[in-house]
């Protein structure tokens, strides 16, 4: 069973009198252990699609199934619980909290869960992304590539089924981008998760198990 499945998803934005159809009848699914890369021109709806997959936004029409469960009509609070337990996010500009150390940033998503101590897992994840010697560094003491690794570790702290990455290499140079992609590929297998990423980066396509091309809100 697909870990995430979108069926006939339509997303319309109302701006003034105009209606923008950002996604038109999109079908999308991803499996565990698979890296799917979404490509397409600017404004084609890539981020919009990724937000649907990540349960950050709800479709105007269509259906979303997470692990076979229909989550289309979930309330914001129910969606938050799903994101908390099933999904990890990596953003283009890292979005780490500047006042927290690398370890604390990784623990952040589980911070309010006082019942479980994810400290050991946070440290372990940081070791696995090669930051074992940077545990107590703050984001401003880390390079771009190192920050993105912290972000990846953070995305995995809750043992998600899906990791979503919107242009994870967008702010990195070629070499650093490549190491990040190798990292993601390795983690995908280790953790048996689905990785869905959006990119403009040609080299990223080489790491993908599957490429989805989006043009004008339609999958080609």
């Amino acid at each position: 069973m697909s870990v995430i499945a979108l069926t006939d998803v339509v997303k319309r934005y109302q701006t003034g009198h105009e209606t923008v159809e950002a996604l038109k009848d999109v079908d999308f699914r991803a499996e565990r252990g698979e890296m799917v890369t979404i490509i397409g021109p600017s404004g084609s709806g890539k981020s919009t699609l990724l937000n649907m997959i990540g349960l950050l936004d709800t479709p105007t029409e269509g259906q979303i199934r997470l692990d076979g469960r229909d989550v289309t009509d979930f309330t914001e609070d129910e969606l938050t619980e799903e994101r908390r337990s099933e999904i990890g996010f990596v953003f283009q500009d890292f979005h780490l909290l500047p006042m927290l150390t690398a370890t604390e940033n990784v623990e952040l998503p589980t911070m309010w869960d006082t019942s479980v101590d994810r400290h050991d897992r946070a440290v372990d994840l940081l070791h696995r992304v090669g930051l074992g010697d940077r545990l107590d560094h703050r984001p401003d003491q880390l390079s771009g590539g190192q920050r993105q690794r912290v972000a990846i570790a953070r995305a995995l702290i809750n043992e998600p089924d899906i990791l979503l990455a919107d242009e994870p290499t967008g702010n990195l140079d070629q070499d650093t981008g490549r190491t990040i992609l190798e990292e993601l590929t390795r983690l995908k297998e280790d953790e048996n998760i689905a990785i869905v990423s959006v990119t403009h980066d040609e080299q990223m396509i080489g790491y993908a198990d599957r490429v989805v091309r989006l043009i004008d809100g339609e999958i080609q």
Partner: peptide
């Protein structure tokens, strides 16, 4: 705003 958006995205509840 963006930072709080990240918190919400990674599953921090509104009440939190």
């Amino acid at each position: 705003r963006g930072e709080i958006g990240v918190l919400r995205a990674v599953g921090i509840r509104r009440g939190e």
